Amino acid sequence: MNELLEYLFFTPAIADKFAAALQENDLVYVREIESMQGATLLKIADGVDDALWDSLDELYEVLNTEDQALLEAGLVDEDAKSTAGIYLQLAGGRQTVAQINPDVMNRMLSVITMDEFNAFIETIVRNVETPDDSAICQRQPN
C-alpha cells in the first residue's frame, strides 16, 4: 500500500463495524493498534473511487459519533482509569494524540462546542507548525 487512508476508533466493537463495511466492499485493509491510546487504526489504500469513499466517509462519521458516545458514557472499560486525549492532525499527514486532564477537558466542553474546541486546537497546531513572529496586532484574524 502506497498512500493510505486511516480511520481511528477507540472501541474495538465500532472498529469491527467499519471493518465489516470494508470487507463488504472488497477493500483490503490493515488493522493496527495505536501505541499511545490503544485505539484501533484501520488503513486502506488511497485509490477508492469517489462514490465509495463518500459512503465510507459518511459511515465513519456515524460510527465516530457512536464511538465517542461510548467513550463519554464510560461503557468501554469500567476498570480503566479516566483519561482524555486530543487527536491532532499534523502537517505532512502525521497524527498524534495529546493526553490532557479529563477534568479540564470536561470543563472546556461544558462552555464551548466541540466544533469551537476543534477550531481552537487546529489554530494552535497551525501556529506551532508555522510560527509567525510578527506582532499579534499586525496579524490577520483566523
Rank of each mutant, 00 (worst) to 15 (best):
S35M: 09
V111W: 06
P141F: 01
D79I: 04
P12G: 09
F10G: 15
L56K: 04
A39D: 09
D133E: 07
Q37K: 13
A98W: 04
L71M: 14
E24I: 02
L88A: 07
N127F: 02
F120S: 11
E24C: 01
N101E: 09
S35G: 13
N2H: 11
P141M: 05
V97I: 07
L41T: 05
E72A: 14
T11G: 07
I33V: 15
R94I: 14
T11F: 10
P141I: 04
Y7I: 01
E32T: 04
Q95P: 00
G85V: 00
L71Y: 08
V76M: 08
K81M: 12
Y60S: 01
A135L: 11
G38P: 09
I33S: 09
F18S: 02
M114I: 11
A13I: 10
R31W: 04
E61Y: 03
N127K: 06
V128K: 06
P141W: 01
D26G: 02
G38I: 11
N25Q: 15
D77E: 13
L41E: 02
E116Q: 15
V128C: 07
R107E: 14
Q95F: 03
A15T: 07
A45N: 05
F10A: 10
G92M: 03
V62H: 07
V30M: 10
M108G: 00
D57N: 15
V104E: 12
K43M: 07
I44D: 06
A20I: 05
C137I: 15
N118S: 15
A84V: 03
R126L: 12
I33Y: 07
P12S: 12
A80S: 08
V28F: 12
V76C: 09
A51P: 02
E66W: 07
I124T: 05
A19E: 10
